[in-house]
Structure formats: C-alpha cells, structure tokens
Design a binder for these strands. Structure first.
Lengths: 207, 207
DNA sequence: TAATAAATTGACCAGTGTGGTCGAATGTTG
DNA sequence: CAACATTCGACCACACTGGTCAATTTATTA
C-alpha cells in the first residue's frame, strides 16, 4: 500500500481513475483487472504489486472515496448556516466543484452506496455509517424552520427545495459532461442557479 | 420469433424479465445468456430456439420496451390537458402504475437510453426517435402558460415543478422497492402527492 | 395406438477472459 | 560493481462465453 502511495501523483491518479471507473460501471464481480491496467497504462504485474488482490484494491478505493467526499465536500459545508436555502447553495457549489474535479470518485461512491455488492471490513463499515450520518446532518441539522411560510408544511417545502437543487445540479452536470474543466467558466451557470434559488425563496419563505 | 410469442404468457414474461434485468444491469456486452436462462428457469437451447442470437434478443427487448412505454405510459397521458401541474399529475400516476407493474422494462429502457451500447437497425432507430419526441411533447406541448405567476420566469417554474414531481416519484419508488404489488394500497401516497402538488400550485400559479 | 412433429434439454464446442504469479529486464542507489 | 526497488507481460489453471446439436420428452395427428 505504501508502495502505491509513494508513487508519482499523476500516475497514482490515473490508476485510481481507471479503477474507480471500472468498478463503478461493472460492480465488483464483473470489473476486470485487465481492463483496469490497460486503461491505466501500466503492466498487469504492477496492480498486484501495489495491492495484494482485487478485493484489497476495491477496499482501498472505498476508503479513498469516502475520504475524498468527506474532505472535499461534506466537511466544507458550513453547518452553522441555519438558512436552508443558503446552506443548499453552499453545498451545491462545493459539491459541484469536487464533482467536476473528480467525477469518477462520485460515480464510484454513488453506485457503491446503492448496490453494496461487497460487505466491508468493520472499520470501513463504521466510517461508511459515519459518512451517511454526516450527509444527513448536512440536510437536516440546525435548520431555522421559522423562515418558511406558515401556510406550507415545512418538511414538504424542505423536500421540494432539495429536489429542485438536485434537479438543477443533475441538469448542469449532464450539460457539462465531457467538457474540459480547464478555464470552464461556471459563472453564468451559478447566476442561473441563483435565479432558481430566488424563486424558491420567494415561493417557500415568508417574504 | 413467432415461436416465442405463442408461448404461455407467464413463461414469456419470466424470460423477458430475466433478460431485461440482465441487460439493464450489465449492458449488452457483459450480459450473460447463461445467467438469463438460469434466472428464467429454461434450458440454454430454448433461448436460441426463440431468438436466433444474443443481438436478436436484445433488439426484441428494445422493441418490446418501446411498445410498452408508448402503450402503457406516453399514449395514455391526455395531451389536451393544458394545465401543466394537472398533466404532470396524470403522467405521474400512469407512469407509476406502469412502472410498478413492470419495473424491469423501465430499468432496461432507462439504461438503454443513456448508454446506447449497441446501434439499432434503422426501423428501431426511427421508433426510438419518435418515442423521444413523444416524451418531449408530453412535457412541453400545448401548456397554458398564463396560469403561472407573472413575477416568475415560466421556464424555471416549469423545471422546478418537473424536478419536484420527479423527486417525489423517485422517492416513492425507492420506498416501495421490493414490496409486493398485490393489494398494495397506493392511496395514502397519492394523497401525499396531491399535497405536494397543492404546494406547487400555490407557489407557482397565480391564485 | 402408432407415427409424426414440436418443444425442450444440457453436455459440449472452441474461443476468450479471469485473477493472480513470476522470472526476467530495467532503473536506482550506495 | 552489488544490492535493491520497480516494471513488464507471458503465462497459468480455470471459469465463463455465445452458440450448437443429438437425444429425449411432450403434443398432435391419423
């Protein structure tokens, strides 16, 4: 494992990306180590020089992805912002940035969370539950419910805002798919996003 | 092909479900005919007695799925309903019903549409484009825009409503996943859905 | 009932891909 | 030079691939 971590970061990332992609698209069982090394541009032997076997590699990826998502997303969102829409705004921007910088990680984690085709060793399982809990807190903890309209069920407004934000994000990701991220100007998209948020605010908050 | 269509419908469906599932989960290339026959509970030979090869089977499934989605979903939505929210309500109910009755078809069509790992023969390609067009019309054709609030961009309201409806539907499907559909009482869920729609109406229509 | 036809099976085929190993070659350091 | 770390891909036994087909069971007809 240390072998892999002392590698040239560029190469490291290429291997990670290749593996994350392969597992995300095919699940653990159907994923092919041959394809991984081919797409990573390394010899077959190296993969098993860095990781002792397929499962070991997979668990490393789970660990890596969870770290990434916690460090580059969840822990960066200000949980003290009690205005739900503002918090969603921050979260969306942070998430989008992380997602554009490392889409394979998010894809991998996404399919991992909803298929779970391998049971994890206890320490990873623990960390996974912690991550879920942190994701939950991000959405629901410490929100100021007094900002919402009185004539609308707060939880429902909650969900509608969430679905709206997610919908826009999904939409944007699809539009940006494949685009080179270098000097990609996101400003107009954020402006549009803010307009959506204004509408949501006008619709679900007391004005 | 006629061989397959003259089969006992129960058995027919079991084979279809097995194949739809296999292709949906693994794509054309990675899908295994061995797994298909095993899960369908038939001998290997029969599959190639009904369909001349793997590709033939796949194309049959595409055709079948498109027919299903058009007949049991798209063509049942009243395109003359000009109230967007009402049309979305109808569409959601029809779609949900179809989806619960035949989830594998929707899964298959879903992954097919966004991966397209096989190019279709022209007549299927045509039908596919027609289906996309029908899906578009369902959302955008003949909507009465005067119902919307004047101080909110109509297209954005459009999208927010769409995302809200999709979000709820997604949410509901997940909750109902695996549940037996026999005597499954959807009424409370539709009631909840209507409450959401009321909120959307209150928020985005002129009152 | 006997004869014919249709439906069904799974062992079998050659070929491809599997996760993983290892001896040899190359690079690095002292 | 020697000792060691890194890298490769041919190679392994084996599992699985899409597809075939002789043999058998089942249904239909005469």
């Amino acid at each position: 494992m240390e072998k892999f971590e002392n590698l040239d970061p560029k190469k490291q990332q290429k291997i990670l990306d290749s593996a994350l992609m392969e597992f995300a698209e095919n699940g653990f069982g159907q994923a092919s180590t041959n394809r991984i090394v081919k797409n990573a541009g390394i010899g077959k032997g190296m993969l098993f020089y860095y990781f002792k076997n397929k499962k070991d590699l997979y668990e490393y990826l789970v660990d890596y992805s969870m770290n990434f998502i916690i460090n580059e997303y969840l822990s960066l969102v200000d949980i003290n912002e009690s205005d739900f829409i503002k918090r969603m705004r921050d979260a969306a921007q942070i998430k989008m940035k992380a997602q554009l910088e490392n889409e394979h990680t998010f894809n991998f984690m996404g399919t991992f969370m909803l298929t779970k085709d391998l049971d994890l060793p206890p320490h990873l399982q623990k960390r996974y539950e912690h991550l879920q809990q942190q994701g939950y807190a991000l959405l629901y903890e410490g929100i100021d419910k007094t900002l919402f309209r009185k004539d609308v069920d707060v939880d429902k407004a909650f969900n509608l805002i969430r679905w709206g934000v997610d919908g826009y994000q999904q939409n944007l990701l699809q539009k940006l798919q494949g685009k080179k991220m270098t000097e990609l100007d996101l400003k107009p998209y954020w402006d549009e996003f803010y307009e959506y948020l204004d509408i949501l605010k006008k619709s679900f908050y007391t004005n």
